[in-house]
């Protein structure tokens, strides 16, 4: 007998079938969903950017509003991925029993979980992309940079979707996710360089910030938004770190979910 606790292998066609299920729900609720995903960050961008920006002359050689725009893009992407992979996926797993229904078909738990991961990354890309377009329209992001910004947004979305999966695997109710936001997401927002330069932080916190994925997303997006390209080492470190933070939590969550849902 095969190891019953080993998750099934990734089957792209089957994971895509599940991804399409989520995409169809989104299409039916597209307008409120997109508005929610980008109005909030847009308000942050212009509220903070113009309000605080009036008090600040320049940050790292550019107006505060321009400095803030890539930070808000990364922040919006992180939030969209986290909300989708936490609340929406948990709702489908635990409340609606969508996963249970799907598992009686040829789809496996691996297909469902990877379908959720890819869907949350997709939704985060749409949210981050919408904020990018607004920022570009306001002259804060170079239009020519958008094709380079989108892959960074997609990788950021994938990473934060993957980081949320272990929480879904452990959660007994929605309340559990509040810890994740309070203890992880919100502190990271302020330690990532999204809202102000990392150089403002004490040295130990700067070192700590290098371990946070949002820091690396911001480090890639900031030069891109300004029309330049990030240093190769910045890119390499970001891709390796975000890659690891995608693969490892996903694998852990899959094993844990297999034990939980297929006892």
């Amino acid at each position: 007998m095969a190891d019953p606790t080993a998750p099934a292998r990734f089957a792209p066609r089957r994971a895509l079938a599940y991804w399409r299920r989520n995409a169809l729900v989104w299409r039916k609720l597209m307008v409120p969903s997109l508005l929610g995903n980008f109005i909030d960050p847009t308000l942050y961008l212009f509220g903070l950017g113009l309000g605080l920006g009036a008090l600040i002359a320049e940050v790292e050689g550019q107006p505060y509003l321009n400095f803030l725009a890539p930070g808000i893009i990364a922040y919006a992407t992180m939030n969209a991925a986290s909300f989708e992979a936490l609340y929406s996926a948990f709702s489908r797993m635990h409340v609606q029993k969508t996963w249970e229904a799907v598992l009686t078909t040829p789809l496996t738990l691996t297909d469902v979980v990877l379908g959720e991961l890819l869907w949350a990354a997709t939704k985060a890309t749409l949210a981050g992309g919408a904020v990018t377009l607004v920022a570009a329209a306001a002259g804060l992001v170079a239009f020519t940079a958008i094709p380079f910004i989108l892959p960074v947004i997609a990788l950021t979305g994938l990473t934060f979707a993957a980081l949320a999966l272990p929480m879904v695997a452990l959660a007994k109710s929605y309340d559990f996710f509040l810890y994740y936001f309070t203890l992880f997401i919100t502190p990271m927002s302020f330690l990532s360089g999204a809202f102000f330069p990392l150089t403002q932080l004490p040295a130990p916190l700067v070192a700590f910030a290098q371990a946070l994925p949002l820091t690396h997303a911001v480090a890639l997006l900031r030069p891109l938004a300004a029309g330049s390209s990030p240093a190769f080492t910045t890119l390499a470190v970001a891709v390796v770190l975000m890659g690891l933070l995608t693969v490892l939590p996903t694998r852990w969550a899959l094993r844990r979910l297999t034990r939980r849902l297929l006892p």
């Binding site: 599940y18 299920r21 729900v25 039916k28 609606q96 249970e100 229904a101 040829p106």
Partner: peptide, 27 residues
């Protein structure tokens, strides 16, 4: 084909969408 003990139809979908989305899972 499996009819579960507790209904787990997709509440976001119509009757037709429930069938079509399920058919996709079978390719």
């Amino acid at each position: 084909g499996v009819v579960p003990q507790f209904d787990n139809l997709d509440p976001d979908f119509t009757a037709e969408e429930n069938l079509i989305v399920f058919a996709r899972y079978f390719g």
